[in-house]
């Protein structure tokens, strides 16, 4: 019961903050959103010339932000390592 009360209180609190934030966002699909007008035009117009890849998402994750993806591959590796350590790996 106490847990439910804590849950509901937190729910109302977080829900209030989220509702306030969502109403401030630019409408879904608006081409004038700041997220679409600042850096994206450069990616859209230059990526084929810069990387030779037709898939803009591929050119972002593997060229412009390849360092990020290296970290991501490391996360996968570390997760596999940690899980093998926790579950006892292959010994037996």
């Amino acid at each position: 019961m106490r847990r439910k009360m804590i849950g509901l209180t937190l729910l109302l609190l977080v829900g209030y903050v989220l509702a306030g934030l969502v109403m401030e966002m630019p409408p879904v699909g608006s081409p004038d959103a700041p997220a679409y007008t600042r850096t994206i035009p450069r990616y859209l117009s230059r990526s084929v010339e810069d990387t030779g890849a037709m898939n803009i998402v591929a050119s972002i994750i593997l060229d412009y932000r390849a360092y990020d993806t290296l970290g991501e591959a490391t996360v996968l590796f570390t997760a596999a390592l940690a899980i093998l350590a926790v579950t006892g790996g292959d010994e037996e």
Binding site: D50, T51, G52, M54, A58, S59, L62, D63
Partner: peptide, 20 residues
């Protein structure tokens, strides 16, 4: 990728994109 001299190839071909 391209600035380091890795051949990028013709965009649209299978062997293109260099390091990608």
């Amino acid at each position: 990728n391209r600035v380091a001299g890795i051949p990028v190839g013709t965009p649209g071909a299978l062997f293109s994109g260099g390091a990608i």
